[in-house]
Design a binder for these strands. Structure first.
Length: 853
RNA sequence: GCCCGGAUGGCGAAAUGGGUAGCCGCAGGGGACUUAAAAUCCCCAGGCCGCAAGGCCGUGCUGGUUCGAAUCCAGCUCCGGGCACCA
């Protein structure tokens, strides 16, 4: 064998072996054929942005460690890979380079695929898919038409960001400080017709099923619960008159017990009442206009100054009959609930501040821990539950009784009933963009919206267009949109909106199970592989992608595909984000030019604080803190340099060793060197072993260390703490190097170490396993188990504490009683006890004795 | 603003159910080998006081529970993720 570790040669040979043996091809067992239990291991597929970034390397290395581990454990493992290939960056690149998004995307896929191959991932490439291929997205379209016929897909208006100069819809990301990113024009809100998927029809099931997902992190389940947001409350009607006709303003409240304290109502700027009232009121009209120019994003909306204006209309309080004013307020959202709220200033913080600002009455109706009054400033206690006061017939009732009685009384007047309200909203999937899956609808002047029939699917997206930033090029292409109505045959217009790319990624996991299925979205093979046993991806997907996938799995189930499979992912590992620092230069035009951290020279003080940051040319740059690696901040670290220099195994080992998978990882190039050193040291050890004569005996102490590390590593790998598994590999090598001579411990230890390390650094372990004569293929070797005999000990070390302070340690023969252990402990620390009586002896078996004096 | 996380040496981290805080590494210091460099090997290393023996302090902050708290509880601070058109 080679005396020096040459990662390029080792990796080339190992990859050639896997290729020649089809080592990672996965097959469904044929009838009667023996197969281990199946294990479907899936990492979130990448967007082909150009090059792999560190987050990809981390994600796919974690998935590969699990894949190879379960293979060695004897499972029938599937690990596929594909491309989330539609999306906005391709259009941006197209505009910048005058290249069609399709070409840019396919080029990126080719490059990134080569990178993935060079990392040696155990992927079944025969199942590769790209969502921008018609054979994939035709099934998006097929499913959409099914949902459309069932009423689970429907059309209504939705709010978008509108750039008045480019005459185009902007993504949230393209709105910077309220202005269009290319034009700098103030962005307006615009309501346009869109298609929605009725995810709310599954809200109850999506929520309830979270309690039966033990393999998901509590954190993610909690986020999803709060996002779905089930609340029980009362729908309350406030009658009012509009042009002499009786109308009812409906609101939803979870605090119906405070209804007697409602002193006004507030509606969203888009509410019909607001439009009606502003017709005769120019000031109100101006205010509604102002709200219209405001932000669409909830994060921005929640932080703007709360403003309002009276409509001049009054509503009748449904129980007291009192007339209360109706206001328009910028904090009421049209998209949530009824687009209107009842305001109880005494017991709601936002209403309290609004009432103070505009001099509206504040009427306390709940006894709270601080008393009956609600003097300013606001105190959180005002919002706590308590018995009703100043509430007429409801005085003295506690929360639940009050809600029940009030709901009953409202019901009797036809002005309310109990209601379950969801925070979750239906999913708007229409995008006014080119590079996406066409929505399969034809708009016919006679027949309305007609879904494209199955035999005309797919509606193929032309791949040669170049967008110019002024709207969707499909809408300018008669060859695309001019068509005949599938229903009546007369001239009609094809829908030119495309689907949200989250649709593509909501079912790809099922498609991997049955590549080439051209008669159905998924075939019977999906029922073998699904659900995914282990899904791995970034925590940033904790809500949207994972919730949409859970929704789609149920929709597919209800279409008769994969019967009985409701949850797509049995176990979920949310890896932490890879973070990096970001720096920018202020350009003369007042924009920020983001400088890659690799090109910034930073000087730090002894505590690591930044003293100065400059470009290579000496220009001062501004430090913008640490955050997720993103294209927009140009702070991505390219892993390729690392792979070229040290090889894939070092890159893999380092990403695993650096921190536990769920931690965020602040990237630094330092530290990689140590991983390389370890692999080289292991190779050297193997080389020397290959030429050594081994004695037959075991070194009992070192053998104990090896098996103790193995035992811990086996626990850790099941707990998905892979960093300590990597650490255990290092400790075993340290122990083996400390052996005074080559003996049976060396051989057994190496065979354990190579198998333990194989999932993390597969190339090197593959090669050493063969060179040292352990076998043909380490991936087919059994996973090592510790030998109980090696772990048996005659004596146990106890820590001795006095009053909780560590004062020494003592060696106790195995099997000693607590009394014997305690007396040994007392003699070990006698100088700390002197003549004071020992009042309490706490003995923790196998660990510690605490003496209380 | 709301929801969810996190914080341990100069740095990444370890400590599996409350039981020796800092394993394993990185960076650093000292030494060996070498004409030299690289590579490799050995030693040191949380902070403060001390020649040493040893002592005191120490897991973001302030309190609490406990024989014993990085770990549990309450209240904060700062950082990260998400907030529905980035993916």
């Amino acid at each position: 064998m080679q005396d020096r570790y040459d990662p390029q040669a080792v990796e080339r040979d190992a990859q050639a072996f896997w290729q020649a043996h089809g080592s990672f091809r996965s097959t469904e067992p044929k009838a009667g054929e023996p197969a281990g239990p199946k294990f479907y291991c899936l990492s979130m597929f990448p967007y082909p942005s150009g090059k792999l970034h560190m987050g990809h390397v981390r994600n796919y290395t974690i998935g590969d460690v699990l894949t190879r581990y379960y293979r060695m454990r004897g499972y029938n493992v599937l690990q596929p890979m594909g491309w989330d290939a539609f999306g906005l960056p391709a259009e941006n690149a197209a505009m910048a380079n005058r290249v069609p998004p399709a070409k840019w995307t396919y080029d990126n896929i080719a490059y990134m695929k080569a990178q993935l191959r060079s990392l040696g991932f155990a992927l079944d490439w025969e199942r590769e898919l790209a969502t921008c291929r018609p054979e994939y997205y035709r099934w998006n379209q097929w499913l959409f038409t099914r949902l459309f016929r069932k009423g689970l897909a429907y059309k209504k208006t939705g709010v978008v960001n509108w750039d008045p100069v480019d005459q185009t819809v902007l993504a949230n990301e393209q709105v910077i400080d309220g202005r269009g990113w290319r034009t700098g024009a103030p962005v307006e809100k615009r309501e346009i017709p869109m298609y929605f998927l009725r995810i709310t029809a599954y809200a109850e099931e999506l929520l309830g099923a979270l309690d039966h997902l033990p393999g998901w992190p509590e954190q993610v389940k909690l986020m999803q619960k709060n996002w779905i947001g089930r609340s029980e409350g009362v729908r309350v009607g406030f009658p009012y008159e509009l042009e002499n006709r009786r109308q009812v303003l409906w609101v939803f409240t979870t605090r119906a017990d405070t209804l007697m304290g409602a002193t006004f109502c507030a509606v969203a700027a888009e509410h019909p009442i607001a439009s009606f009232a502003s017709r005769k009121n120019p000031q109100l009209k101006a205010f509604v206009e102002e709200c219209r120019r405001g932000p669409t994003m909830e994060a921005d909306l929640a932080q703007i100054e709360k403003k309002g204006m009276p409509t001049g209309l009054y509503a009748t309080h449904p129980l007291s009959g009192e007339q209360i004013p109706i206001w328009v307020a910028n904090y009421v959202l049209m998209g949530y609930g009824e687009g209107a709220v009842m305001a109880v200033p005494a017991h709601d913080e936002r209403d309290f501040e609004f009432a103070l600002k505009y001099g509206l009455p504040i009427r306390p109706v709940i006894r709270h821990p601080l008393g009956d009054g609600v003097p300013a400033p606001w105190k959180p206690e005002y919002a706590e539950y308590g018995v009703c006061i100043n509430s007429g017939p409801y005085d003295g009732l506690a929360y639940q009784d009050a809600v029940d009685r009030i709901a009953n009384d409202l019901n009797a007047k036809n002005l309310g009933e109990k209601q379950v309200q969801w925070r979750l909203r239906d999913w708007g999937i229409s995008r006014q963009r080119y590079w996406g899956c066409p929505i399969p609808i034809v708009h016919c002047p006679h027949c309305g919206d007609v879904p494209v029939p199955d035999e005309q699917l797919p509606v193929v997206l032309p791949e040669d267009l170049v967008p110019d930033g002024t709207g969707n090029p499909l809408a300018k292409l008669p060859a695309f949109y001019e068509t005949d109505c599938p229903s009546c045959g007369r001239a009609a217009r094809r829908e030119t909106d495309t689907m949200d790319t989250f649709v593509d990624s909501s079912w790809y996991f099922a498609r991997f199970a049955c590549p080439g299925s051209d008669a159905a979205m998924v075939d019977a093979r999906a029922s073998y592989w699904m659900p995914v046993d282990q899904y791995i991806g970034g925590i940033e997907h904790a809500i949207l992608h994972l919730l949409y996938s859970r929704f789609f799995q149920r929709v597919m189930r209800d279409e008769g595909l994969m019967p009985g499979v409701s949850e797509p992912f049995t176990n979920l590992l949310t890896q932490g984000m890879v973070l990096a620092e970001s720096y920018y230069l202020d350009t003369p035009e007042g924009r920020r030019e983001w400088i890659n951290p690799a090109e910034v020279i930073v000087q730090r003080d002894s505590k690591g604080r930044i003293l100065s940051a400059k470009t290579a040319e000496g220009k001062e740059v501004t430090y913008d803190g640490i955050g997720t690696m993103s294209k927009s901040k140009n702070n991505g670290v390219d892993p390729q340099a690392l792979i070229d220099r040290y090889g894939a195994d070092t890159a893999r080992f380092f990403t695993i060793f650096a921190s536990p998978p769920t931690n965020t990882l602040e990237w630094s190039d330092e530290g990689v060197e140590g991983s390389y050193r370890f692999l080289r040291r292991l190779w050297d050890f193997g080389f020397r072993f290959s030429r050594a004569e081994c004695a037959a005996a075991f070194d009992r102490k070192i053998r104990y260390q090896v098996h103790a590390e193995l035992k811990k590593a086996n626990d850790d790998i099941e707990r998905q703490k892979f960093n300590t598994v990597a650490s255990a590999c290092m400790k075993i090598l340290n122990a083996l190097e400390a052996l005074p001579e080559w003996d049976a411990t060396s051989k057994e230890g190496l065979s354990i170490l190579l198998r333990m390390l194989a999932p993390i650094a597969p190339h090197l372990c593959h090669q050493l396993w063969r060179e040292l004569g352990f076998g043909e293929d380490v991936m087919r070797a059994p996973w090592p188990e510790p030998d109980p005999a090696a772990l048996a000990q005659d004596e146990v070390q106890y820590v001795v504490q006095v009053n909780g302070r560590t004062r020494g340690s003592v060696s106790v023969p195995a099997g000693s009683s607590e009394e014997q252990t305690a007396s040994l402990a007392i003699s070990a620390v006698s100088k700390y006890i002197a003549d004071k009586p020992v009042r309490r002896k706490i003995v923790i078996p196998g660990r510690l004795v605490n003496l209380v004096i």
